[in-house]
Design a protein around this nucleic acid. Structure first.
Lengths: 197, 197
DNA sequence: CCTACCGATCGGTAGG
DNA sequence: CCTACCGATCGGTAGG
């Protein structure tokens, strides 16, 4: 028997989770049926349960994978010796790129986390809250070091995180436009503002 | 017979729509059952249908009321003789205030419009697209008049509309903080930026 | 406004 | 991986 050699080590479960992310984004978690998901994969609904435990597990896998990716990136940024402005710019660019490269998964984590079940939803909110707290601390440092204008740091974090989420609307009607241009313009607006002085 | 005199002219249908907005925000449209909605009102599910035609009609009423409010406000702004910066500031403040004063309805219009049915969803997207186009035109005027920095106007509109949507997160963990403070700080960030110069 | 009920669809299981 | 099927729940209607 030849050894199985595969450059892409993608399990059936990975395929199911990926297809679930696409459907959950398009229709929402509650409005997506397991029969629908099974059909896009080409099996009967009951067969899905050989690979996953429940519909809810699919949502958990998607939401916590994304939350973890953001947390790891922030940890790396925090260690660097860069200025606060450089760190914030790096974080903004990471959010925009995550949105572009993992559109379905980030969208689902942003919109469908409320459908998580009881221990998971509070865990998810706790992780998000912790992430926001670390960002707020970065902004406070920047204000203290006179790098940033003295705007309420909670509002700054809210504005930045909300703005980068908006990238999800971009490809809906501007498929042709350059993704790097979107990134650079949004960074410019969020850091330097809109008004000419 | 005495004439019925009522200072609040609120019909049963209005009550149903309002309670539906609260539930649709909390749980999502698809995950909210008509039995649940009926229970919060204190009737049986079947009784709802004496006042409304269908579950989908509730979502339509919520989404199009909000879309209409924003459209009317923008029309008023466009007529004024103010500077572009003043107009944009006014629009940003209106969005923030709508989010604060009609939290459930704006949230539902922002998140659950995808659950609208066929003629309504395209109508809704058309109205939103038109609204964004008018905003983009305002920004282009501002750039031409040298009031604004030359950032891609589509990105500016995307950043602003996304940022103000973030107000929905505010009251989740900052119930005590002053709403006017949130408004002023976000306006300051979006217009003048974050970096100290 | 209620009781009673409809067909459809749901997530998930048994058994092979 | 399938067939066959379960109980639960859904949006909505009939009739009073």
């Amino acid at each position: 028997m030849a050894k199985i050699v595969s450059s892409k080590n993608i399990s059936k479960k990975d395929v199911i989770v990926k297809k679930a992310a696409v459907l959950f984004r398009k229709k929402g978690f509650a409005a997506t049926s397991m029969r629908e998901l099974a059909e896009t994969i080409g099996v009967e609904a009951s067969s899905l349960y050989n690979h996953i435990g429940s519909k809810g597990e699919l949502l958990q896998l998607i939401c916590f994978k994304i939350a973890n990716d953001f947390s790891i990136h922030l940890s790396e940024i925090e260690k660097k010796p860069n200025s606060i402005v450089q760190k914030l710019e790096n974080i903004i660019r990471f959010h925009i790129n995550m949105m572009q490269d993992h559109y379905d998964e980030v969208y689902v984590a942003n919109h469908e986390w409320r459908q998580l079940e009881d221990p998971f939803i509070s865990n998810f909110l706790q992780q998000r809250k912790f992430y926001e707290t670390r960002l707020t601390e970065l902004v406070n440092q920047g204000i203290k070091k006179k790098e940033l204008r003295p705007i309420d740091s909670s509002v700054v974090v809210l504005t930045i995180l909300s703005a980068v989420r908006g990238v999800e609307f971009w490809y809906r009607h501007k498929k042709t436009s350059d993704r790097k241009q979107l990134e650079n313009n949004m960074v410019s607006h969020l850091l330097y503002g809109l008004i000419k002085i």
